[in-house]
Each structure stands twice: as structure tokens, then as C-alpha cells.
Design a protein around this nucleic acid. Structure first.
Length: 728
RNA sequence: GCCGAUGUGGCGAAAUGGCAGACGCAACGGACUUAAAAUCCGUUGGGCUUAAACGCCCGUGCCGGUUCGAGUCCGGCCAUCGGCACCA
């Protein structure tokens, strides 16, 4: 709908025309940027980077859309390939996306998934000077030596760094490698380049690597350590280079053992000798580290970072696993970018030219070459004499990043959401709802969106928040994950297993009411649970019982209102069950415990059914019941509501209220226990005193038998519930 | 390896620290029917004892703890599922 994606394109332009001010830690209009090249800091930018290319889908994919080297949609192979693509600078918001989670009422597991994906690590970046490389030798002054930066979460183990490893793809390798090591290094790099991501990350495989011939100086003690390249170091994380601390890192130890590199323990494990501490990766006491000896990990870390900073050999540093969001696709069905290219530079399309509609094409299919389908529309591409349109399109996530905002004000043609509507629905505390935290009150969705939609939408929302377009920094205040419905064989529904249940087939046989009610009756909302056709049948039977509770079939085979349904006062028992049902269903809906709400309504119907013919069914109780059941089974309850000749529309009725006084029993059953074991049950009037209950228990024959010749040491009385006689 | 969930009958599941298994499915028995379907009624955790009833014992993944009392709280394991993963 162009009236919708117009605003998706508009929001993209807001992102494009913004930058992240690191001092204020927030997005600002690009006009506030003082630097030379605004294009280098925009939140939407173009970069030539190795991307996830999926030949089968004919498009590139975001990291979040690649699972185990396969596309999230369809499961097709994905390969690394350098391409020029649009990226969104989500990494600038990594800290805020992480911190923002704290305040959210989300499942802990989901927060953990996002935290994990963002992957914040605290540590230090150390500078290793390179001596004895193709660019330097022993006579080069220290300050002129090339520098390799290395990130570590364990700066306290710096003295134990006995070698260094670069990722094979690291461009620094070319600068480091010495004449005599050229061949083996080139061969190794070629060998690694030929491997797929999957092969490379196979944990089981042996460590491989080659020496570059170059040496670095350990910044802690200026000791010469060899520089290797190995594929266990990844270009995509940190700086693409590590310091090898074999004594306290299992991977480094494996590598060092294989290539006979020296291993120096610098952390002593409790109760172990230094030699025995090799392989120990937990916190311990620093040894063999002149500046740090005797310090705990915490103290050693603080001290070495101070020292590094003072000596300009390193600094405190934080790293994230989160990468920028690859935002362009080579597909027809996506929002076209509101961008034109002129003289090799991109620029924003004027707002008044939105929506930018895609051109009509004969063939929508991906080209397969990486060239977007839109590139085929030569007339459309040509924007002016010297400018052409961007031909990539946005991913499906773009539109879903802000739809909840549009829901607040769907018809607005002047803004993506009216300011007042946005404040009303998404804003926080106001006079009417003082405790409202803002954002969407309740968002129900699957966990599969953990690091896709839920991450992307939070990011967009934060940009809009910084730009003053929305009133709260988080979009989804409370979130509940509904569990996945498995096939009847308890496996994930999939064509492969032939266990897919089509809702339409179920609705065809049992109706939408039965389908809905069964889904809610199956079990707790959040839980994964298998489908059962028999279960649907059971719920369908319940709805049929509801029908027959009020309706009878006449001689002609037509359903008519049952004669038992009368305008009479409910009996005391009927009143009690009705009020109990109102209470249970109301509370269960609040807590999203729909399964037990339905159980209670089954109990209600079971309580009324046997009385048919012998006792009148009060129409008032039926009215109450139908209103309770209406959200679960809207069709049958609407029909019955009409058949009862009730006034108004059932969906417009006020929700029933219960009277706690009517739920109180006259008599209660008291459980008698001896030493915690149930021995008897007695019925006493409500409100019997503790003394009365205790006396009744002491006098009870079964209690006395169970006690035998034990003396009573203690009697615990829980009013209206239980008496526990403790003997011994 | 790290993080997170979950373990209760034949099955889906209930249970503010207080009667374990509500409700439903399945199964079995019965009523209705020429018969079947549908519907209705009843039984249904395991074991021992008994002609039967009554009665008794065991039972919420395993081991321990707290408590008058634990499916529930605490500690330690085990298993299954999900996510991340040579992340430095």
C-alpha cells in the first residue's frame, strides 16, 4: 500500500539524514555534524563489504537472517561475497539497545537472546609494535614501528602473550610478512579462502596456521613474540588480530602445543603450582607479571589498563558482536530506496516525491547475478539528465519496524503518526493511567523474532525518539512469547515430516470457535505443545454442550430455545458457580491463563447440564456465561445471545462482576493430618475457631489411631483449611 | 563450552508452602438404538490387603536440605529442548 510505505520511505530518509553523535550518545540531524564528509557518519550508508549472498534467493541477507550458513527463509546456502550495499548503523546503538532491555517486561530468555546477539565484551585494546617485519627491523626506532591493535577481555594476562595471530584475511598480513615467508603465507591464505564459513567454524578440526616471519613487541615487557596467521582468528570480530595467551586460553593452548610456542603461566589457580595452572582460565592471582604479581584478576585488570593508558600502549575498550544491519535486497517486492545517484554520490529524494513506487515489470524474479530486478526498468531508473535511482529495495523488516505506530493513526496522510495519537497510545503516564510506562502495553509474538524484528524495531524506534518523533525510547513495554505449536508427533511442523496442520482445514470441520478455544485450552500460552485433533474434538463437544444447554431440537428437527431456560432467580448453588466462574475467568484472562479459564467454563456447563428437565435454567446466568465465553467463542455466543432474545449486541455488554460474598461457603471441609499425612476430612461450619478445630482433630478417631501411643507435641491449625497434629 | 527454558498419569495439563492429578483426551463398563453414530451415566496414578467395601503403603526426573507440612522454597546432580559459539 503506497499510502503506508510512503512513510516507511520517509522514516528511511530520517535515518539517512541523521548521524550518531558519540558525545551525546544519540542520533541527531546530519546538519549538526561538523566534520568533512557527512556521508561517512550517516546512520544509513553504503559500504563495500563481504556480505551474505544467497544465490537461491538472488539477494543478500542480514546476519540475523543467516542461520548455520543457510538462509532463515527457505534454508538455502549462503556464501560470503564482497558487494556494495546499504547498511544501517545499528551498532551505534548497541549500548542503548542493551541497557534499554533492563526496563522491559519481557521474558528473561528473550532478553538473554538479544543480549547475547549484541554481545558486549569489556576489556582493553593493546598496541603491539611490530619489529622485524618487511617494514621494520631491529634498528627502526620504537615510535616508527607499525602497530597492530589487539582486543582482549583478559588484559590481566598480557604478560602471558607469547605470540600473536592475525586473521588470514587481515590486510596487515601483507605489510608484515617477510620475504622468506611469502610463499607459505600466500598458500595458507589461498587455502583458507577456498573454505566455506561452515568448514572454517567446525570446532572439531585441528588448529592450522603459518608463521609470517614477523615479530611483535609485547607492550607489557617489550619481549619479541612471533606473529602467525591462523583461521581460528576471525576478521569479523575485534580487530582481526589476537594476542596468544596459551597458558590461560584453551584455543591458544591448543595452537601453541601444536606449533611448539612457549607457554608462560601468568595466573595462579587456587591451590595449584604455576605449572599446574596452565590451562586455567578462571580468576586467580597474577604471577610472572612484574607490574601485577599478587593481584587478583580485578585489581590486575584495572592496574594494567591504567598503565597501558599512561604509557600510550593501549586503552580500555568495549566490543560488540552486533554488526551493522545490511539493509538492501535484490528483490522486486520491497520498498524502493528514496535515493538517487549523481556523480557517484547518493542523495535523498525530496519528501514530496514520496511514495516512490516500484516500476511495473514483466518479470519480478531476481536476476541471480546480484543485480536488482529494478535495474531492468531503464526508464524508471533515469531520474534526470545526470541522476539515476537506487535500484536496491528494502528488506521485509522495514515495513514491520514501525507498523505499531501506524496503528495509532492509520489514516493520517500528513504524518507517519499524528503527534497527539502517538502520545495517547504510546506515551507514558497520564492522568487516566498514572502507572502506564509507555510503549505497547502487551505485545504477543514468537521467539523467532528475538534478534530480527524485535531488535530492528527497537533500533528504528530509538532513532525516531532521538529525533523527537516519538515520545518513549522503547516500543514494546510488555512482551509475551507464545509457544510454538508442534505437530501431532511432537515435532516441529514441517513439510519434511508431513505433520503440518492447516488451520483452514480444522476450521472447515470444527469451526473457528472450536479452533480458537482449542488453541487456548491446549496449555499455557508460553509453552511449546503438540497439536491434537482429538483435543479439538473435545473442545468442539464442549461448545456443542453449551448450545444444547440452551437449545433443544423439536420434532421438525429445528433448534429452538429450550423450555428450561426461564426468567427465574438462580438457586443458591447456581449463583455460586456463576460468580465463581466470573471470578476465575476474569482473573485468568488478566494473567493470560486462557486454558484454565476454559476449564472453569466447562465446569460451569457441567454443573448446569444434569439439571436440565429437573430444574429451570435461569436466563440471567446464561447471559453472564455467554459474555464470559464471547471472547473465546465469538460466533456461537453471538448466535445464542440472539436466540435468547437478549437486548443489544453481545460484544457491547459490560463485563460481568462477581460478588465475593456469594462465593463464601457455609461449611468447609477441614483436612486432618497427623505428622503431615492426611488421615481424615471433616466438615465444619465456616469460621470455626482454632480451638474448636484443634479439639475436633484431637477427638477424631482416625487421628487417634494414627497417633497410636505418641504424645502430641504440637498442633498446627490453618483456619478453614487444615489441622496438623504432630506427635512423637 | 556459555546462556536460557522444561521435567507431574497412557496423552495435553491443574494445583496463593496446606487433600497431587482440576479440566480435557484416550481407554474400559453401562444407558439409549434393530444397529451404528451422536448423546447421557459411571470407572480410570501404581501397589498391597479383601469376597467386596473399609483400610494400608508408594508416587510430581535423581540426591540432599529447610519446614508441623515441599510438585511448589534452598543446594547439588541428571535428562530433554532452544539460542549462541575458535567472539579473543
Amino acid at each position: 500500500d503506497p499510502a503506508y510505505y510512503k512513510w516507511t520511505q520517509w522514516i528511511f530518509l530520517q535515518i539517512y539524514n541523521s548521524w550518531f553523535n558519540p558525545e551525546k550518545k544519540r542520533a541527531e540531524p546530519i546538519s549538526t555534524y561538523q566534520g568533512e564528509d557527512p556521508d561517512s557518519v550517516r546512520l544509513a550508508y553504503v559500504a563495500e563489504v563481504p556480505v551474505n549472498w544467497c544465490p537461491e534467493l538472488g539477494t543478500v541477507l542480514a546476519n540475523e537472517e543467516v542461520i548455520d550458513g543457510k538462509s532463515e527463509v527457505g534454508g538455502f546456502p549462503v556464501v560470503r561475497r564482497p558487494m556494495r550495499q546499504w547498511m544501517l548503523r545499528i551498532t551505534a546503538f548497541a549500548d542503548r539497545l542493551l541497557d534499554g532491555l533492563e526496563e522491559l517486561d519481557w521474558p528473561l530468555s528473550l532478553k538473554a537472546l538479544q543480549r547475547n546477539w549484541i554481545g558486549r565484551s569489556e576489556g582493553a585494546e593493546n598496541e603491539f609494535r611490530v619489529a622485524g617485519s618487511s617494514r621494520s627491523d631491529d634498528r627502526t626506532p620504537l615510535r616508527d614501528l607499525p602497530v597492530i591493535r589487539v582486543f582482549t577481555t583478559r588484559p590481566d594476562t598480557l604478560y602471558g602473550a607469547t605470540y600473536m595471530v592475525l586473521a588470514p584475511e587481515n590486510p596487515l598480513v601483507d605489510e608484515m610478512v617477510t620475504e622468506d615467508r611469502h610463499r607459505p603465507v600466500a598458500e595458507y591464505r589461498a587455502q583458507i579462502a577456498a573454505k566455506s564459513d561452515l568448514e572454517r567454524t567446525d570446532l572439531a578440526k585441528e588448529k592450522t596456521g603459518v608463521f609470517t616471519g614477523a615479530f611483535a613487541l609485547n607492550p607489557a615487557n617489550d619481549e619479541r613474540i612471533p606473529i602467525w596467521i591462523a583461521d581460528y582468528v576471525l576478521m569479523g570480530y575485534g580487530t582481526g588480530a589476537i594476542m596468544g595467551v596459551p597458558a590461560h586460553d584453551v584455543r591458544d593452548l591448543e595452537f601453541a602445543r601444536k606449533f611448539d610456542l612457549s607457554v608462560v603461566p601468568v595466573v595462579q589457580a587456587p591451590g595449584k603450582t604455576p605449572e599446574e595452572s596452565i590451562g586455567y582460565v578462571e580468576d586467580g592471582i597474577a604471577i610472572n607479571s612484574p607490574l601485577l604479581d599478587g593481584l587478583s584478576r580485578e585489581a590486575a585488570t584495572a592496574k594494567i589498563i591504567d598503565w597501558l593508558e599512561k604509557n600510550e600502549r593501549g586503552r580500555r575498550n568495549v566490543r560488540f558482536k552486533l554488526r551493522d544491519w545490511l539493509f538492501s535486497r535484490q528483490r522486486y517486492w520491497g520498498e524502493p530506496f528514496p535515493i538517487v545517484w549523481r556523480d557517484g554520490r547518493h542523495e535523498a529524494l525530496p519528501e514530496m516525491e514520496l511514495p516512490l513506487k516500484p516500476p511495473a515489470l514483466e518479470d519480478f524474479k531476481p536476476t541471480g547475478t546480484g543485480e536488482p530486478p529494478l535495474a531492468k526498468a531503464k526508464d524508471w531508473i533515469r531520474y534526470s539528465e545526470n541522476a539515476t535511482r537506487e535500484t536496491n529495495t528494502m528488506p521485509q523488516w522495514a515495513g514491520s519496524c514501525w507498523y505499531y505506530l501506524r496503528f495509532c493513526d492509520p489514516g493520517n496522510d500528513r504524518r507517519f503518526v499524528g503527534e497527539e495519537s502517538e502520545r495517547y497510545w504510546m506515551g507514558g503516564n497520564d492522568e487516566a493511567f498514572p502507572a502506564k510506562p509507555g510503549g505497547i502495553d502487551l505485545y504477543i509474538g514468537g521467539v523467532e523474532h528475538a534478534v530480527l524484528h524485535l531488535l530492528y524495531a527497537r533500533f528504528w524506534h530509538k532513532v525516531l525518539y532521538d529525533l523527537g518523533q516519538v515520545s518513549k525510547p522503547e516500543p514494546f513495554q510488555r512482551l509475551v512469547n507464545q509457544g510454538m505449536i508442534l505437530g501431532e508427533d511432537n515435532r516441529k511442523m514441517s513439510k519434511r515430516w508431513g505433520n503440518v496442520i492447516d488451520p483452514l482445514d480444522v476450521i472447515e470441520i470444527y469451526g473457528a470457535d472450536a479452533f480458537r478455544c482449542y488453541e487456548m485450552f491446549m496449555g499455557p500460552l508460553e509453552q511449546m505443545k503438540p497439536w491434537s485433533m482429538k483435543g479439538v474434538e473435545g473442545v468442539s463437544r464442549f461448545l456443542a454442550r453449551v448450545w444444547r444447554l440452551m437449545m433443544t431440537e423439536n420434532q421438525a428437527g429445528e433448534w429452538e430455545l429450550s423450555a428450561a431456560v426461564q426468567d427465574v432467580e438462580p438457586t443458591k448453588a447456581q449463583q455460586k458457580i456463576t460468580h465463581a466462574t466470573v471470578k476465575k475467568v476474569t482473573n485468568d484472562i488478566e494473567s493470560l491463563s486462557f486454558n484454565t479459564a476454559i476449564s472453569q467454563m466447562m465446569i460451569f456447563v457441567n454443573a448446569f447440564i444434569p439439571q436440565r428437565g429437573t430444574e429451570a435454567i435461569p436466563i440471567s446466568a446464561m447471559h453472564t456465561f455467554l459474555v464470559l465465553l464471547n471472547p473465546f467463542a465469538p460466533h456461537i455466543t453471538s448466535e445464542l445471545w440472539e436466540r435468547l432474545n437478549s437486548a443489544g449486541n453481545i460484544t457491547a455488554q459490560t463485563w460481568p462482576v462477581y460478588d465475593e460474598k456469594l462465593l463464601v461457603e457455609d461449611e468447609v471441609e477441614i483436612v486432618l493430618q497427623v505428622n503431615g499425612k492426611v488421615r481424615d476430612r471433616i466438615t465444619v461450619p465456616l469460621g470455626a475457631t482454632n480451638a474448636e478445630l484443634e479439639a475436633a482433630a484431637r477427638a477424631n478417631e482416625k487421628v487417634r489411631n494414627a497417633l497410636g501411643d505418641q504424645t502430641i507435641r504440637k498442633v498446627v491449625v490453618v483456619p478453614n483449611k487444615l489441622v496438623n497434629v504432630v506427635g512423637g
